[in-house]
């Protein structure tokens, strides 16, 4: 069965997306009308050199920023003009983020970090603990629940971040250079977890400037100078379970 048949509507659809900063004379255009679709179960790498606008694109797709033009349809709904509170709810309920620099809270335990989205969702503590423990076990950190975030390794930190991204059962996981701060061995573990999650049906959007990292996705969207350069399936996909280290 093809992806299109699994879900006939695209999960994410952008049409002529435009983003510029500043006003009047000082206006800086970052995105010049980008259009593409992402379907349920996809694993897309957004690639491009730094300054290409790929991060801005991810921020808009992840509801961290607002587009200045064009249309954004998420799960079939037009989400172009949502206000701050609605965006926060989208991030809380539908999106999971994994960042390059982990962004874990200091002076808090692994379990508490993963529970954070559920705190803002006003979940009961018992439910939050149960859900957070389950996702931490699924990324192989069941033995680190009560560790403080400064007591674990970089690879483990990124796995905590992945668990935090998963805990609210999001529609999409955004991973922004998730291996950028890791050694190649930890990096490949993270890519393997992302590939496993995709196998289980999760939609993943990976932002990277490393081709070797991007080739773990099923499809690569290349952005250059704020425009879509190419949108192609990965011809020779890398599988992290067959690799020992992440090539750079």
């Amino acid at each position: 069965m093809s992806k299109q048949q699994l879900a006939n509507k695209p999960l994410i659809e952008v049409r002529d997306l435009i983003k510029d900063y500043g006003e009047g004379e000082l206006i800086t255009k970052v995105l010049f009308g980008v259009s593409f679709q992402v379907f349920q179960g996809d694993f897309v790498a957004i690639m491009g050199p730094s300054g290409s606008g790929k991060s801005t694109l991810m921020h808009i797709l992840g509801f961290l920023d607002k587009a200045t033009g064009g249309q954004y349809l998420f799960e079939g709904h037009n989400v172009t003009g949502l206000d701050d509170d609605a965006l926060a709810i989208m991030r809380n309920q539908r999106i999971g983020f994994v960042f390059q620099s982990f962004n874990l809270l200091p002076r808090t335990t692994v379990l508490e970090n993963v529970m954070l989205p559920l705190v803002y969702a006003r979940n009961k503590k018992v439910d939050a603990v149960k859900a957070a423990t389950a996702v931490l076990e699924s990324v192989g950190l069941g033995h680190r629940l009560d560790y403080y975030t400064n007591q674990i390794s970089g690879g483990e930190k990124q796995r905590v971040a992945i668990a935090r991204a998963l805990v609210n059962q999001p529609a999409v996981i955004f991973a922004d250079e998730p291996t950028g701060n890791l050694d190649s061995k930890s990096g490949i573990q993270i890519m393997r977890i992302l590939q496993d999650l995709n196998e289980q049906g999760n939609t993943i959007i990976l932002v990277t400037h490393e081709t070797s990292t991007g080739e773990h996705a099923k499809r690569i969207i290349r952005i250059k100078d704020g425009k879509l350069e190419s949108d192609k399936p990965v011809a020779k996909r890398r599988l992290a379970k067959n690799e020992d280290t992440l090539a750079k």
């Binding site: 961290l64 509170d85 926060a88 809380n92 960042f99 962004n103 954070l116 803002y120 935090r164 609210n168």
Partner: peptide, 16 residues
């Protein structure tokens, strides 16, 4: 500031 950004990223509203 970064912590505020992270909290917002996981769903904290302005009021939170």
């Amino acid at each position: 500031t970064r912590e505020i950004g992270l909290r917002k990223a996981v769903g904290a509203t302005n009021n939170d």
